[in-house]
Design a protein around this nucleic acid. Sequence first.
DNA 1: AATGCAAATGAGAACCATTTGCAACTAGCT
DNA 2: AGCTAGTTGCAAATGGTTCTCATTTGCATT
Lengths: 142, 142
Amino acid sequence: MRQSKNRIVELEGILREGGVRVTRQRAAILKILAEAEDHPDASELHRRAKEIDATVSLSTVYRTLSALEQQGVVQRHAFENATARFETADAPHHDHLIDIETGAVIEFRSDKIEQLQAEIAAELGYDLVRHRLELYCRKRKE
Amino acid sequence: MRQSKNRIVELEGILREGGVRVTRQRAAILKILAEAEDHPDASELHRRAKEIDATVSLSTVYRTLSALEQQGVVQRHAFENATARFETADAPHHDHLIDIETGAVIEFRSDKIEQLQAEIAAELGYDLVRHRLELYCRKRKE
DNA sequence: AATGCAAATGAGAACCATTTGCAACTAGCT
DNA sequence: AGCTAGTTGCAAATGGTTCTCATTTGCATT
């Protein structure tokens, strides 16, 4: 609670420094994002943000998300056959496991895989700029 | 040449067995796909297929690609910020390295990464159904 | 507190890759 | 050759996302 409040203030600072105004609508979206434990999409964020500020429009949600993405504050993910989903970029780098039955997203990280990726790119004569690794899974039954 | 011809006949057989009719248009699209060395998108396939059979429409390209995908003959890839690209599913499984400057796609395979992925899923209580691994790279300068 | 102005907003139109409805064909079995 | 369900081309629809534009607003400066 207190943490997320601080986090919000911090995020607002990042925006101001980036020359991005902190409006009522953006504050609402930022708060929702900072408190989100999941990976909501634009319309879910819109739904949640409207509870704080009913005037927030979907256009503004999209525009704000793009602005936040450019500031490096938010990350956009385009998982298979789905609308874009978002998360704050405060956690260290990680990849995603998607439950193909529920759509739930679990974060994970493997330094070994990260390293192997860089090696593969290097072997092929490339520098790795970024990557996308998604595991589409089904919950183990037993 | 001869190989791709055989491959086409083979693919047509798969379709017929799957209860999918091999029409003039589908034969053209199949030929283009079998001969493609790259990862073309729907409109590029359409452009190429029209050279064989001018009547092929873009709708049919899309419909055929969906049918082929369902038969497991074609794979669809949705790389970042781009339209879907396709390839025949005859080669063994591989992942992709995308040159972010040219859009060129290079295939690669890492058994180690494959194995690590399965282990990660298992640790999290999941069975890995499929995955997506894409390396977005820039050609090394020197 | 009032002012000025660039940035931001809401509503809806535009975009664009992909899908779909429909009436006219046709592959492939009999 | 004929039948019939699968296919086709065309045009219209779809749907997530972006853009346009007239209006509002944050905020630096008086």
